[in-house]
Computed example of a mutant assay.
Amino acid sequence: MTVNGFERGEDGGGPSECDGQYHSHKLPLAALSTSWYANGQRCHKKIRITSVRNGRSVEATVVDECDSHHGCKNNIVDTSKAVWEALGLDTNIGEVPVTWSDV
């Protein structure tokens, strides 16, 4: 899992693929790598993200694609700061191991 900015002007780039909107980093949000994004089939659906390090889980809403054809790894869950905080993780780490599942 990596941290992403979903607000205008943050490191996430343009608006979200699912709805063409920007979203608050205070909301638990996720962008999935291309194959998991599944051409938008997971848009606005909840996923459960679990930290491998501490076992804590949080539900997040999929709002974007992390494009694996343009720099994103094939197995990335890119999330808002709210997800990291809910999992008790430091966003400065950069990348942490997680598991995820559809809710």
Rank of each mutant, 00 (worst) to 15 (best):
G94T: 00
S33L: 00
G71C: 07
R53G: 11
L27N: 14
I49S: 03
Q41L: 14
R8A: 14
R42W: 10
Y37S: 05
G14F: 04
D78A: 04
C18Q: 07
A30V: 11
G14E: 03
G13Q: 01
G13L: 01
G88Y: 12
V98L: 06
V63W: 03
G13A: 01
K46T: 14
G14H: 00
Y22P: 02
C43Y: 05
L29G: 09
H25L: 06
K81W: 02
G12C: 00
V103Y: 13
I49N: 04
D78P: 05
V63P: 02
N75F: 09
D78K: 07
Y37C: 06
L87A: 03
S16D: 14
S24W: 09
D102K: 10
L27W: 10
S101A: 15
A38V: 07
N75H: 13
K45I: 04
V98P: 06
E59T: 13
G20L: 02
P15D: 10
R56P: 03
E10A: 09
I49V: 14
S51T: 06
Q41E: 15
K45S: 12
D102L: 13
N92K: 15
A31V: 11
G55I: 10
A30M: 08
R56L: 13
I47C: 00
G88N: 11
D67A: 09
V83R: 00
L89P: 07
A82G: 00
G12Y: 02
A30N: 01
S68M: 05
V62Q: 07
S101V: 13
R42S: 09
S51M: 06
K46L: 15
T50C: 09
V83M: 00
T50A: 10
P28H: 10
V103A: 15
L32W: 01
E85S: 13
L27K: 15
S51A: 09
W84A: 05
G40C: 04
S33P: 03
G40H: 00
E65Q: 12
D19Q: 10
N54W: 12
E65W: 01
E65N: 13
L87M: 07
N75S: 14
L87N: 05
V77E: 04
Y37Q: 02
N92I: 02
G12D: 04
K26L: 10
D11V: 06
V98Q: 08
G94F: 06
D67Q: 03
A60I: 01
S80E: 12
A38G: 05
Q41G: 14
R8T: 03
V52T: 15
C66E: 10
N92V: 07
N75W: 12
K26I: 00
R48M: 13
V62W: 08
G71T: 08
T91W: 08
D90E: 07
I49T: 02
G55H: 11
D102I: 09
D64K: 09
V77D: 05
K46H: 13
S57Q: 08
D90C: 06
S80H: 10
V63D: 03
S33N: 00
K73Y: 12
T50K: 14
A60G: 02
E17P: 00
R56W: 08
W36H: 15
I93H: 11
I76R: 14
A82I: 01
